[in-house]
Design a protein around this nucleic acid. Structure first.
Lengths: 204, 204
DNA sequence: CGATTATGAATGAACG
DNA sequence: CGTTCATTCATAATCG
């Protein structure tokens, strides 16, 4: 399709912007960075990149974040497609377009079965639980309080879960003898109960 | 394919159970608990929650555990606001939601409008020894409990893990910037790629 | 235009 | 807990 038309639409004019659609220049820059070896940009890097990319069209930081996430993931996924007989030392390895990705994609060259090395690790549920229990009493001493506001960009968008805890009013249990608790009873029993009602049934 | 249809058919999306895919009811319950203030459920709470959630479909304890972990983390990231930038009229929050509301109907809310400055910190309402003060008159009847046995139900003790708030951001600066990942500067400086030098000049 | 593909977005799972 | 990986969902782009 005509590229210019697409860019014109996605850049700014398009009112129908359900999701971000990068322009050719934006893709070019992102691809260059990726080819250069960038895989997991930091928050600051993402901010700079998106700022720079905004010169070519509308873009948000989360778009850059997702772009790298997806690109990295799909590069790897695509890499695992061409695994053949691991025992046959046939011709030269097809080190085609994977030159720049060799930094951290080489690890998967060993595994042949469908298991990813991440999955291969026995995910012991108990360890996580142990971690969790430990974290409750853990004291974080490494945190330093910034003296001023920290400007950050939004990442990891939480899709649609409400975040307003302010609707729930909390009162301090004066003597602590009346610690109210959340009941699960009604919630589990109810079929799609109203929101407020659920909270109510929680005993909160 | 339509998500809701498949979910209605089997209660699970698809036949492949590679990973947990919560039903709408399960998500709703979890969300309510989250909104009520629950962030780090204890092992017993997790067990109890998963037990009750199993009424709506297959679920394991670890799923509940992960759910809270992820949402707590992503809530935190999502709450990072940027200050007003006079150059960015974004945050349009494309409210073109129509059919994607299958998972959650009401929970979706408009993404953060430009909020005031310091806000990413101090969510001090971890008043977990709390009681929910709210008039429950009109809603009690809907549950139509034969008795007022609510007080004797299994409850979730909301434990209070201290006032460990205000761990705002640990500024990684200080001692050492670990070069675990490729910095944008290195990339832009041109290790391997024919990257535009203009990127460097832009401060990328 | 309906089906398929490419890819942005979301989130469950897991690592360090 | 913050971060990263893997998988899935949703949709613009594309094909037949």
């Amino acid at each position: 399709m005509d590229q210019s038309v697409m860019e014109a639409l996605s850049g700014r004019v398009g009112v129908k912007c359900g999701r971000w659609n990068p322009t050719a220049e934006q893709v070019k820059v992102l691809t260059e960075l990726f080819r250069a070896g960038l895989r997991t940009p930091s928050t600051e890097q993402i901010q700079r990149i998106s700022t720079h990319l905004s010169a070519f069209g509308k873009v948000e930081s989360k778009n850059v974040f997702y772009w790298f996430q997806n690109h990295k993931a799909r590069e790897r996924h695509h890499h695992k497609k061409r695994r053949r007989c691991a025992s046959s030392p046939d011709s030269g390895s097809t080190d085609d377009e994977s030159r720049a990705a060799a930094r951290e994609a080489d690890a998967d060259l060993v595994l042949q079965p469908p298991e990813s090395k991440r999955e291969a690790r026995c995910y012991n549920h108990h360890r996580l639980m142990t971690c969790y229990v430990r974290d409750v009493v853990e004291t974080d001493a490494m945190w330093e309080r910034p003296t001023r506001e920290v400007e950050t960009l939004e990442l990891f968008p939480l899709k649609s879960y409400g975040l307003e805890m302010d609707k729930v009013r909390y009162v301090r249990g004066g003597s602590g003898e009346h610690c109210r608790e959340i009941t699960f009873f009604d919630v589990a029993a109810g079929r799609d109960p109203p929101l407020e009602l659920t909270l109510c049934s929680f005993g909160l």
